[in-house]
Design a protein around this nucleic acid. Structure first.
Lengths: 198, 198
DNA sequence: ATTATTATATACCTATTGGTATATTTTTAT
DNA sequence: ATAAAAATATACCAATAGGTATATAATAAT
């Protein structure tokens, strides 16, 4: 059974995560947090050590949600190559989806934390590494089952795909135009077919 | 002849621009500004209306420097196609270069300003549009002199190149690894040769 | 050199910042 | 139902925020 504090903690994270994600760490005040949650500082500080700890937990909370959604989308196929297509396909609708999270947590917190919050930056790096490892593993699987060419460097392409997607996310948000996400998904698909396959 | 205030204004912008670029708008305090410049609030507010105005001018200052550096690098050739190669080549060393600016102003201020400062975001958008227009014009030139295929959509590829570069910049900074910039430059070169040329 | 103007420094303002000690209320286990 | 424990609210703190009125100093024109 969940204790009261656990329920409250989850509620705080659920409420506060999009705010941190949207505003950034420095631009999110304790007042923003208490107003959004309807709780007082006592309740916040009873559940989280300080603002930094709360921001870190909020980031983890959002990323967990995001990664689960991606996994779910990719589970539609068992073929590694098809899973790659499903990955790019997930990002076709990422603008709409990620708005609910307050934007892309990796992009927003990554830029925000750089030179500002070493701990938060470390968490972002870990998430990026995890994602790239997963993509690389998928490509390796694809090579093994002969869906993908054994000539290609898996991690190299994993980084390329990740980098292209992050660029598209940045451009889509900044220009408020999801052409970038749609187009980069197409570009990745083309790359899978023309460069990564036999 | 330059008036005292003009010299001081330029000095303030030169000193403060990298700070805003690194920290973001909210995380840069007037204290940061007075300490870095060695001036008092009186001097700052005598030259700039308020913090927002200063941030906007600082962004313009940095972007101007950056765009001039890119132009300079691209002036090494007159051929549109070669100019495109020079563009991607500029970004090969962009990590080192942009560190002096306090990071990439378009990425940093773009993310920072989103949902936070409408005026600043507008300025970022204008800069992005300007850059993409220039790249697209270059591609059109390339088509005209028959260096590039007339089949391609110039603005489409301009956006693609821009998006790929921004992604690489984000990844390079966040992971502290300029593989991403080097690789995306290679990828763009390959794209020019294999997709955009005859 | 003196004056008028411009630029900078000083001192101060209110509001807000993150954070905490303590009082009060709400849960939980008996 | 009651007591012990846990969770939340209240009231407060010092420090800092952006900004301004005014005094002082530096510059520019005569």
């Amino acid at each position: 059974m969940l204790t009261k504090a656990e329920i409250t903690s989850q509620y705080i994270l659920d409420t506060v995560a999009p705010i941190f994600n949207q505003n950034g760490y420095a631009a999110t005040s304790l007042k923003d947090i208490t107003e959004a949650t309807g709780l007082t500082k006592g309740a916040i500080y009873g559940n989280f050590e300080n603002k930094e700890r709360l921001a870190i937990e909020a980031f983890r909370f959002t990323v967990k949600k995001l990664l689960m959604e991606i996994s779910k989308h990719m589970s539609q196929s068992d073929s590694p190559k098809q899973k790659l297509f499903l990955l790019s396909d997930f990002y076709r609708n990422y603008y709409d989806y990620s708005k609910r999270l307050g934007g892309c947590p990796i992009l927003n917190i990554g830029v925000d934390a750089n030179n500002q919050n070493a701990l938060l930056l470390k968490k972002v790096r870990q998430v990026i590494e995890k994602i790239q490892d997963k993509i690389a593993a998928l490509i390796e699987d694809g090579i093994e089952v002969r869906e993908l060419s054994s000539e290609i460097n898996a991690m190299h392409y994993a980084k390329r795909i990740d980098s292209m997607l992050q660029g598209a996310i940045f451009m889509t948000y900044t220009m408020n135009d999801d052409f970038y996400l749609k187009d980069s998904a197409d570009q990745i698909d083309q790359m899978i077919i023309e460069e990564m396959s036999y």
